[in-house]
Design a binder for these strands. Structure first.
Lengths: 327, 327
DNA sequence: TATCGTTATGTAAGCGGTTACATAAGCACA
DNA sequence: TGTGCTTATGTAACCGCTTACATAACGATA
């Protein structure tokens, strides 16, 4: 079923059909008739032909660090929803947290003619990206370094969220609050938020240990904290690290939610099923995806969209208890 | 950068370039030269033009029931890995568990020229699918009803896995084993496996209650079981339902792993963090995806691939305890 | 040497849309 | 009634590939 058959059936030329279908100048009566015929014939234009003719693929590429990450599904849903409204689709590829592979993935997606690339999470550094930018379509960065890259960014307000989390602990009577930190921009910002909350309440920063955003790292970090002592609560920069911390505390004979209070970050599902359930900050994953898609659509139109910053929601659960006592 | 520029630079015609690039008949020396020039110029052929010329899009469509489902990410990874090797990509869309929407999604993907469609999990019934088959490309069904559909199927061996799970409980001394069942093919097969294991050991089937594959359903089903009594262990047809069951048992003052043993199904991440950790059967999600992609590639070649049946792995955890005593 | 079969390469016609440009029709106005 | 402007529609080129068919070159064979 091609546009020629529709033209023939409607008794007009292909140009008129094309115009009727794409909102060009056509007499209303003609448009009506063409649309009707096209509908009856079940005509749907060949995307390939359209791409070839217009040079616009109506597709954007999305790169995620890890196909199995629980947040990425939600982000992709947001992206898909938003793009569908504009008649766009997306191609996803995962870098599997390997910067080298990410480079390939980027090239691969560009070779597939995507009009924009949404890069989610960490991967190639800003300088590497800058070096490639010439051969790539417009970028949109989601929760990723690269402010210097002249690409619209969609992020969460890590610092405010971290501050909120820490304040929550303070409001529950904690005065000596440690931090298990993570790397990169997200890690730094969360650390800063923790600092800011403590400073705002005139409290001294408790010990900080890096946990590398992994479960094993969280475990080791918590062990180190336990050794150093001097805290009644910990703000952990990710749920995954909090998982490791639970284990370390349990092994040390400390009860989370009683002997020590914990707040995580991300809002991953398993947090609700830990014992005790983990207080955490939920990332607005789907909204991040939607915002990213909107930005991507904007750049394909040649616009330069504003950066977007979304905030996280605190989910209070039993891992935080009121702290009453002395040292 | 088009094939014409490459042809010009290499001093040959576009036909020769095309042949050199696609493995047609070309003199080895010419091929060498063309490849070199193309490489130097960074030529990468326009997918749209290629699709238009060949009628093959080198893309397959994937429909999942739910973008946030933890298993789908793994399946998509498997699909992506397998397709990439063949130079194919995929487009994903989610039906959001709405059969009507799935119909749209299928049409949408077909309109996007995919060469095959991989349908994962439940959705449109076989008859509805059969009715649409005329307007769709070849289908591949993953863990889905539709044996009558003349489409290759990729499934897990639900029945064997369920039998294995039940046998595991029997080996731990349980003789009165209940079942929380789920709907559809997967539910029926798991029920059958449970039955078979009991029969094989000459044990009477314990009570069976339907839990609809949801957490709330699992909760209610467990409540009903508790009321009926007469079991020391439960084989629950999904981890999600097991979650509800944990809650019901806890509320009834029964300790999972002590007063009652539980085995789930799916191998979702949170199961490891329940208290006690849930014994379950891990679905080979990534392999399912790979097998589906292989099947899809085969059908695009006009082959009729064999059905694939994969098995699940039992993950023993603390939700199952040795049962020693009497009633 | 004329003929034929191979093999390597070139020419040009699509594939199915979009769109610049040409044309025709209709109307207002002098 | 002729002129000019606006509006609706048609014609055909083009997007960048693939590939059927034509052609040329070259040995091998009669």
């Amino acid at each position: 079923m091609t546009i020629y058959e529709v033209a023939e059936a409607a008794g007009v030329s292909v140009a008129t059909v094309s115009r009727a279908l794409n909102g060009g100048r056509v007499a209303p009566s003609t448009r009506e008739r063409v649309l009707q015929v096209a509908g009856r014939l079940g005509f749907s234009p060949s995307p390939a032909a359209r791409v070839l003719a217009t040079g616009k693929s109506r597709a954007i590429g999305v790169v995620i660090p890890d196909a199995t990450g629980p947040l990425y599904g939600r982000m992709l849903r947001g992206i898909g929803l938003e793009l569908a409204q504009a008649g766009y689709t997306y191609l996803v590829e995962s870098s599997e947290r390997d910067p080298g592979r990410e480079g390939q993935v980027l090239r691969d997606l560009s070779a597939r003619d995507v009009e924009a690339l949404v890069l989610i999470g960490s991967g190639l550094g800003p300088q590497a990206l800058a070096a490639m930018q010439g051969e790539l379509p417009a970028l949109v960065l989601v929760e990723r370094e690269g402010a210097e890259l002249a690409a619209p960014m969609v992020t969460i307000d890590n610092e405010s969220a971290a501050e909120r989390a820490t304040r929550y602990l303070i409001e529950h009577g904690h005065e000596r609050i440690a931090h298990i930190a993570g790397p990169r921009r997200a890690g730094r910002e969360r650390l800063a938020g923790w600092r800011r909350a403590l400073a705002a309440h005139g409290l001294p920063p408790g010990p900080v240990v890096d946990g590398g955003f992994t479960e094993a790292g969280g475990y080791r970090a918590a062990q180190e904290l336990i050794e150093r002592d001097g805290f009644t609560a910990v703000f952990v920069a990710s749920d995954r690290m909090a998982l490791g911390a639970y284990r370390a505390f349990r092994e040390a004979g400390l009860r989370v939610g009683a002997d020590v209070s914990l707040v995580g970050f991300d809002g991953l599902e398993f947090g609700a099923y830990l014992d005790p359930p983990l207080t955490t900050l939920r990332q607005p994953a789907q909204q991040l995806g939607q915002a990213a898609a909107r930005a991507a659509l904007a750049v394909t139109r040649g616009e330069r969209p504003e950066n977007v910053v979304l905030s996280c929601e605190l989910i209070p659960r039993a891992s935080v208890m009121e702290y009453g006592g002395g040292p």
